[in-house]
């Protein structure tokens, strides 16, 4: 069986752990718990008759004051940068994270995830600006960890891409 390592990056509180929890366990909790270090989960998917096991490395939230440990990305098939569409700053931070990651692993596919689509968009970025920024990434997917909207698709896309 194929095993693929996927890392999930992003600023604090954008919903990285919730995305993984929704994908792996199908549940969402309103309770907020900060991830410390890294939390690893796995889920098996079937792609065109082939089984793929995704090992999801949910990294702790990254902000401008604390960098992240680039070693965690070593050997990753892909990584996801999650931002929160209710916080304008999260997109800027997400772009910073992308550039930091690219510095060490320029060839690894990076997925851009705009999370919390169940809430009204309240950042000041226009759709065009978001799409413009998304060009730096392999793909842009808008998700809601709460409703599960697009979550399955996100990881299926990554699994497909990883093959």
């Amino acid at each position: 069986m194929n095993q693929k390592k996927v890392c999930i990056l992003g600023p604090t509180g954008v919903g990285k752990t919730s995305l993984v929890k929704q994908f792996v366990e199908g549940i969402f909790s309103e309770k907020y718990q900060t991830t410390i270090g890294v939390k690893i989960d796995k889920k098996q998917l079937s792609q065109n008759g082939n089984d793929v096991q995704l090992l999801l490395w949910d990294l702790e939230g990254i902000d401008r004051y604390c960098g992240f440990n680039p070693r965690y990305l070593r050997g990753a098939t892909a990584y996801i940068v999650v931002v929160d569409q209710t916080r304008s700053q999260s997109l800027l931070e997400g772009l910073d994270i992308l550039s930091m990651a690219r510095e060490h692993y320029p060839d690894t596919p990076a997925f851009f995830v705009v999370n919390k689509t169940d809430l009204p968009t309240s950042w000041h970025w226009s759709e065009e600006e978001v799409n413009e920024h998304a060009k730096s990434f392999t793909s842009l997917i808008k998700t809601s960890a709460k409703t599960g909207d697009n979550v399955e698709d996100l990881f299926s896309t990554i699994a497909f891409w990883a093959q």
């Binding site: 095993q3 693929k4 690893i40 796995k42 090992l55 070593r74």
Partner: peptide
């Protein structure tokens, strides 16, 4: 070593073997 994924595991008592994938990562 690079990806942290499990290549293979053997156990003296298969019933007692732990979730090797997660342990490896």
């Amino acid at each position: 070593r690079e990806t942290g994924t499990l290549l293979h595991t053997v156990s003296s008592d298969p019933q007692k073997s732990k979730d090797a994938d997660l342990i490896s990562s």
